[in-house]
Structure formats: structure tokens, C-alpha cells
């Protein structure tokens, strides 16, 4: 599966350019997607992934050999990689696709697997637990399934020791679970793993000098043809606000009327 214990860890961090979480999205004409001419930024869970890789190096300098940020997306996805570089990643890989191309989680997982095979020394892949656009939450698990590597999903605490032993606290329904595993590992981040840093101006400047390798899907022998067909994208049923009441007594009578008390 993997050559002996890693003395130095090579980390791969996939990051996705997504519509900014604060944007109120609109359905695009034709009902096949949403209006994407709005502010984009790095998927919030991926910021946490980059932050965790950088913190690991800051805490255990000798342990982390490299941090590579990778993004699959249109030309503008390079901005997302630059953000990761400004946060502390060493280099980037950009697999470019034409604007508007849908790249499904399975295709992303297959692409990351190719990159792992190509590098030959990746020990740890840290991904966000889900992208806030398609909300699928499958890429990390799929990658683990494709590679056969161990997985730690929804991590809220991570510890990696020199001998490649990994301790992860995971968020589960009803509480927390602690597991122990070994590198190589696929980790997905939950919100509470850390608080991502803002890139400082000097670091943004420095990031411009860091190397980003640009690849096309064909360069890796990949085919991103979607397996799933979009029939429609529509707005959810509008909820009608029911107006306000003046007093607690009125509130109670409304609850009674509705039959909930």
C-alpha cells in the first residue's frame, strides 16, 4: 500500500473555488444552474484544511516536508490556489477546465488519486468535509475508497506523530469519536478543527512567487464527462413569514391555534 513509515510528511490539500458563502444565490435563466457571475472564494471547509496543514508545520516543523494546494476548475480557480499559497502552502497544481464545466466529486477524487500516484510521496490529503455549492460531501470518502487509504472524516482534532501514527477526534451524531490510524490518510475537516488565518499582505506578495503547475485533464489521462445529468435547478418553495405578534400572550394563543401546545 505505502512504503514504510514517513519521516517527513507530504501533504496535499485540494481546494475548491465556490460561490462565497455570504452570497444569496439566484437561479440562472433556463433552470439548469445558478448565476455564477457573483463573488467567489475558497470553500470555507477547504480554508480549514489549508490552515490545518500549515499549523502542523508550525507546530512540528521537522515533520512536514511539503504542502501542495490543488484545485480543479476554470482559469479563475488559480486565485483560490494563490490564497492557499498566501496562507502557507508551498506550491500549487491547477487542473484547468473551461468556465462552466461541471466536475463531479468522483472525477475530482480520480484526479487527486492520479496526483498522489504521480507524486509518489504523498502521505496525507486534507480536504474540506463538503463544498458549500453542491453540498455533496463525498470527495474525501471517494478518494479514500479509490486509494484504499485510511480515512478520518469530520475531524475536529488531529495529531500526527513522527512515526506516522495519527489520532483524530471526529464529530459524530450526538458527540465525538476518537480514532487512531496510520499514514497515509485521507482527512476531511469539520468546522471546529481550527480558525483559518487571513493571509497577510507580505504573504500575499510572497505567494505570487510560488510555483503553480498548470495541467489539463488529458495530461493525467482523465475524462471529466459527468455521470449525473442535471434535469433542473429551481428555487425552493418560498416560505411566507406570518407576521409579528405584540405580546407573549398573543404568541401563546398562536401556538394554541396551530395545535402545537
Amino acid at each position: 500500500m505505502h512504503p514504510s513509515r514517513p519521516s517527513l510528511v507530504h501533504i496535499l490539500v485540494p481546494v475548491k473555488r465556490a460561490i462565497d458563502y455570504a452570497v444569496k444565490i439566484r437561479i440562472a435563466p433556463g433552470n439548469k444552474g445558478v448565476d455564477t457571475s457573483v463573488k467567489h472564494s475558497m470553500n470555507p471547509f477547504d480554508e480549514i484544511a489549508v490552515e490545518e496543514a500549515v499549523r502542523m508545520r508550525e507546530k512540528q516543523g521537522k515533520l512536514v516536508e511539503s504542502i501542495t494546494a490543488v484545485s480543479i476548475g476554470p482559469p479563475k480557480a488559480v486565485d483560490t490556489i494563490r490564497t492557499a499559497l498566501a496562507m502557507g502552502a508551498d506550491s500549487g497544481i491547477h487542473i484547468t477546465v473551461p468556465e462552466g464545466t461541471v466536475v463531479e466529486p468522483l472525477a475530482v477524487a480520480q484526479a487527486i488519486k492520479k496526483l498522489i500516484e504521480r507524486s509518489g510521496n504523498t502521505d496525507l490529503v486534507i480536504l474540506g468535509k463538503q463544498a458549500i455549492d453542491d453540498d455533496t460531501g463525498a470527495t474525501g470518502g471517494m478518494l479514500a475508497g479509490l486509494t484504499g487509504w485510511s480515512q478520518a472524516a469530520f475531524a475536529s482534532k488531529l495529531g500526527v506523530s513522527e512515526d506516522g501514527k495519527v489520532e483524530v477526534t471526529r464529530e459524530i451524531d450526538g458527540g465525538l469519536e476518537k480514532i487512531e490510524s496510520k499514514l497515509p490518510l485521507i482527512l476531511t475537516t469539520d468546522l471546529r478543527l481550527n480558525e483559518p488565518r487571513y493571509a497577510s499582505l507580505p504573504n500575499i506578495m510572497k505567494a505570487k512567487k510560488k510555483k503553480i503547475e498548470t495541467l489539463k485533464p488529458e495530461d493525467l489521462g482523465l475524462d471529466f464527462t459527468p455521470r449525473l445529468e442535471t434535469i433542473s435547478v429551481s428555487a425552493p418553495a418560498e416560505r411566507q413569514g406570518g407576521g409579528k405578534v405584540e405580546t407573549v400572550a398573543e404568541l401563546v394563543s398562536k401556538l394554541k391555534e396551530a395545535g402545537v401546545i
Binding site: A138, M142, G145, A153, L228
Partner: peptide
């Protein structure tokens, strides 16, 4: 679509090389 489903199903989809239809 529970913590267990979200943990196991994507890995299975990867192992079977098929899509995941979530939630």
C-alpha cells in the same frame, strides 16, 4: 444522511467507482 451514512457511503461509492447521490 447521518454521520455514519456520510462517512461510509462516499468511501463505498469510490470503491465501486460510482457517483454519490447525497441527501
Amino acid at each position: 444522511h447521518s454521520a455514519a451514512g456520510k462517512n461510509i457511503f462516499p468511501r463505498l461509492a469510490g470503491a465501486l467507482d460510482v457517483s454519490m447521490i447525497s441527501d
